[in-house]
Design a binder for these strands. Structure first.
Length: 537
DNA sequence: AAGCGGACTTAGTACTATTCGA
DNA sequence: TCGAATAGTACTAAGTCCGCTT
């Protein structure tokens, strides 16, 4: 790198850090002041320490005088080189990776070779928080074997530590937990990281099944629970009033519970942690919610609420500052304690599972499907239902870089097809009159000769029909693409929707399950695959 | 009953593999 | 058959919730 226009040779540790940093030059992280600040603090700290050790003085003090371009160029070159490797080299790497996965990616659980969810420890680098994160750009240290605890059967051989000169931190034999290995992430306040079994494992499958069993159980209690909170909206006790209001929101809008958060995390909220500034009331019953939820995703929704809910929200805002808690008498613990008293195993998050599954089932039931529909058309219906769930749960994704371009491409194709259709129509008319028109050679934009139109009326009609079908298909594609531009269907499919609803629907409508679930999801939900077409949630 | 550590689920994005269409 | 677009997977951050300690 250069400092103040002069080349500098960095000590190895500082160079490593600066290399991590410079690889983000062209990303969104570089637009955040916090990212630079946290990086540079650590950078200077390393340089100071190094200088002190050598009895010199560190001159690098101002990030504005730093030019990390040479490092960035180097990192980008490496990336390009990697992409440009020969097919053999790539195949060789793939094979090696597969061998590692075979060796480290499985555990023997109750005699069965079971796939792990993850088996690599998180590599060192810069912490990349989501949204406006106070710790963005801080250094995430390399994890050493000594930092790692392994959880094995007491009679299992201890795996050899693969790093020479090192040994495992601790070996435990705890069959009351599901993790196989753990370490602490110093960046996120010693947050515990784990190695788990994969989603296809029996342990995870059973826990998934029990999640949906609880949600199904809520179906049986929901009428009573709703009656209770509707009554409690009018309770004279402020804490109970707040609890009922929060439950109305959790049930109707599928908000998360909303635990308290630390100062050194991004400022995001859920239901219980909503602040006065996050809602705007308009009489008689309109409420606009606008806040950042999990992953700093914006939740912006204007809804009509129950008149008592509106009255209560107005009351909770009274004499408060925008930064004050809306539900100052409430936290997730007492909401969940109350829910538990109404139904065994009931917590706030169960409402999301329940409402997601119920919504999909209801939406699918409303779709009118017929036997002569193509699988694509049926899937369009399914995805529309899935989309309603994703919107309910506020599952978003960023618009892909190529979105506008690919929409434009579809338009161009439709236009070309329409133009060709006009020509075919005219040609058909002429042919029918018995005058077969002379066809001049036509060329496409690449200079290739286009196919001539047939002179047989039936063949012309067939071609017109083909074009009509193509136009219809493209239009459908366009609609769906635009609909799903900012909506992510995968999150609800993986976590919230009882897979048996989808399996039953697929069977009933002769849609191959592969159209709905990827290989990984089919492996995750083997327990859902054999329900019959009449199964209901 | 607050508050914290720990265990587990849920989340979007970055990366990689596969499919599509010229 | 190739490159671009799309689908699918890997990754790890960020939630929820429980139970223990003070």
């Amino acid at each position: 790198m250069q400092y103040n226009g002069k080349n500098v040779t960095l000590p190895a540790k500082a160079e490593e850090l600066a290399t991590y940093y410079s690889q983000y030059t062209e990303t969104d992280h570089f637009t955040k002041p916090q990212f630079h600040e946290n990086f540079f603090n650590k950078f200077v700290q390393i340089l100071d320490k190094h200088a002190k050790k050598n009895g010199t003085k560190n001159e690098i003090k101002d990030i504005k005088k730093c030019n990390f371009k040479p490092l960035h160029t180097y990192v980008m070159q490496k990336k390009e080189d990697k992409a440009n490797r020969s097919a053999e080299e790539k195949a060789k790497e793939k094979k090696e990776k597969e061998a590692v996965a075979q060796k480290f990616g499985y555990a023997i659980v109750d005699g069965h070779r079971t796939k792990l969810g993850n088996y690599n420890v998180e590599p060192p680098g810069l912490f990349l928080g989501r949204g406006d994160h106070p710790k963005a750009g801080t250094f995430k240290k390399r994890v050493q074997p000594e930092d790692i605890t392994l959880n094995l059967s007491s009679d299992a051989p201890v795996p050899e530590c693969p790093i020479p000169g090192h040994k495992w931190g601790e070996i435990v034999h705890d069959d009351s937990v599901a993790w196989l290995a753990t370490w602490k992430d110093k960046v996120s306040n010693n947050a515990v990281k784990y190695v788990w079994l994969g989603a296809s494992s029996r342990v995870k499958g059973l826990s998934d099944m029990s999640k949906f069993a609880t949600a199904q159980n809520l179906k049986k209690h929901i009428v009573e629970i709703r009656e209770t909170y509707m009554k409690e909206l009018k309770d004279s006790d402020l804490a109970i009033k707040q609890r009922a209001t929060a439950l109305w929101i959790i049930d109707h809008l599928a908000l998360r519970a909303g635990n308290e958060k630390d100062e050194d995390q991004a400022d995001t909220v859920g239901c219980c942690s909503l602040r006065v500034e996050h809602i705007k009331l308009t009489a008689p019953t309109t409420v606009e919610f606008d806040f950042l939820g999990k992953d700093s995703m914006r939740y912006n929704n204007t809804v009509e609420v129950d008149k008592d809910v509106f009255k209560n929200l107005k009351l909770f805002q009274k004499n408060k500052d925008g930064k004050d808690d809306l539900f100052d008498e409430l936290n997730t613990t007492n909401v969940n304690a109350h829910l538990k008293s109404q139904m065994d195993g009931l917590t706030a998050k169960v409402f999301r599972t329940y409402n997601a599954s119920i919504t999909l089932e209801k939406e699918l039931a409303n779709m009118e499907l017929s036997d002569d529909m193509s699988v694509e058309e049926k899937m369009l219906m399914y995805n529309r239902a899935n989309r309603e769930v994703a919107i309910l749960c506020n599952h978003q994704r960023t618009v892909s870089k190529s979105h506008d371009a690919s929409m434009g491409k579809i338009d161009t194709q439709i236009d070309a097809d329409k133009e060709q259709r006009v020509k075919l129509e005219a040609h058909l008319k002429a042919v029918k009159k018995g005058k077969i028109p002379e066809q001049k050679d036509e060329f496409d934009e690449k200079g290739k000769k286009k196919k001539r139109m047939p002179d047989d009326p039936d063949k012309i009609k067939k071609e017109i029909a083909k074009i009509d079908l193509r136009i219809a298909k493209q239009n459908t594609k366009k609609l769906e693409k635009e609909d799903l531009k900012t909506v992510s269907l995968t999150t609800s499919k993986i976590n919230y929707i009882d897979p048996r609803i989808s399996v039953a629907w697929a069977k009933k409508n002769n849609v191959p399950i592969e159209k709905i679930f990827t290989k990984t999801l089919r492996d995750k939900f083997p327990w859902a695959m054999d329900v019959d077409e009449d199964w209901t949630f």
